[in-house]
């Protein structure tokens, strides 16, 4: 683009004329950007700073108390059964959720890529839960996965009766801190609902990715004698890797801050098997009036998301510049 500009003879002539305009135009540009920028600085960065300050304070009752207590609230949380359980649940939920969303999304994208009839019908069907609220999803799946109703009525014929989100078993558990560390079975139920809702996202991403791969690439591979399976495995999948990274990052930030789905579907659950930091933060802050503890949970949530997001943002911005 720059080269074109310099080679444009008209441009040189106009340069002096433009300069005058530049200043007013630049003022306008500033006026366009400034409101948004100031709002973001205050509402995002300023507020995060304030939350950080609250998390170091003693405000754990109805009346605000901003006396400085250092890391007391954080130390309390890391020794707290409920918060330890939250960290475990979030970890396993995130792995389960991302893994399933990718496998489902990719498989469906490849199946839909086979030039089948009714492709758009299927595609729209798989996308539509994305338009729903997590609250609606939670309400419906709570009923579907209720151990005494829902899908268990079907499963009765097969003689299995999973306890879904009421199951307090921790798979492959071992004692770690206050809690038993392992896969909380109840989280699988939440995962199913979340996967139902979010598969559409990875599917859309992969469909766009597959469309972006030119037919010539496949043809070339075919000429080289690759089987269809090899083409997918060796040619197409590697090309989809950046998309997979995006899907992982986006899904990770959704799962790390998840609140509404769990709040409306299961709540914290028996023995906190379905509790997550988002729910704990909400309940402890707005129900128990432990504002400083709530702020500390929020800051930990922010940091866990930032670990993923910041490098990703920086890299994707750099890639573009």
């Amino acid at each position: 683009m720059e080269l074109v500009k310099q080679n444009n003879p008209q441009k040189v002539v106009r340069a002096t004329k433009r300069k005058k305009k530049l200043s007013t135009d630049h003022m306008m540009a500033l006026a366009f950007l400034l409101p948004s920028f100031i709002l973001i600085v205050i509402f995002v960065y300023g507020f995060i700073g304030w939350t950080g300050y609250v998390s170091l304070s003693n405000w754990n009752s109805l009346v605000p108390d901003f006396s400085f207590v250092g890391l007391k609230n954080y130390l309390y949380l890391f020794g707290d059964f409920r918060f330890q359980a939250d960290l475990r649940n979030t970890l396993f939920f995130t792995i389960l959720f991302i893994g399933l969303v990718i496998i489902f999304g990719l498989t469906l994208a490849i199946l839909l890529d086979q030039k089948i009839k009714g492709e758009s019908v299927f595609r729209n069907l798989f996308f539509f839960p994305m338009a729903l609220s997590f609250v609606v999803t939670g309400v419906v799946w709570q009923w579907l996965l209720n151990p005494s109703t829902g899908v268990n009525l079907f499963l009765k014929t097969f003689g299995i009766q999973p306890k879904w989100y009421t199951d307090t078993t921790i798979l492959a558990g071992f004692k770690w801190g206050q809690i038993e560390f392992g896969l909380p079975v109840a989280m699988i139920a939440v995962g199913i609902a979340a996967v139902w809702q979010m598969t559409g996202f990875s599917l859309a991403m992969y469909i766009a990715g597959l469309r972006g791969i030119p037919d010539e690439t496949r043809e070339a591979a075919r000429m080289d004698g690759a089987t269809e399976l090899q083409i997918y495995w060796k040619v197409i999948l590697p090309q989809l890797r950046p998309i997979t990274v995006s899907v992982i990052i986006i899904m990770a930030h959704i799962s790390l801050k998840i609140f509404d789905l769990i709040y409306s579907m299961t709540g914290p659950g028996a023995n906190f098997v379905t509790d997550v930091p988002g729910v704990y933060m909400f309940e402890t802050t707005f129900r128990g009036n432990y504002y400083a503890n709530g702020a500390a949970i929020a800051i930990i949530m922010l940091l866990s998301v930032a670990i993923f997001m910041v490098p990703y943002l920086i890299r994707s911005r750099k890639g573009e510049a």
Binding site: D25, H26, A29, L33, S36, F37, I40, F43, V44, Y45, G46, F47, I48, W50, T51, V54, H253, L256, K257, F259, P277, G278, M281, F282, T285, Y291, G294, A295, I297, A298, I299, M301, L302, V305, M309, V310, L313, I314, R317, A321
Partner: peptide, 28 residues
């Protein structure tokens, strides 16, 4: 109308869409 630092500014703005909103809720 890019200017010096506009990319950084943009990235700073983008970060706002990924934060868990719990982290601004109390001050908000």
């Amino acid at each position: 109308w890019k200017f010096k630092g506009s990319e950084i500014l943009f990235t700073l703005m983008l970060f706002g869409m990924f934060i868990p909103y719990q982290s601004i809720l109390i001050p908000l």
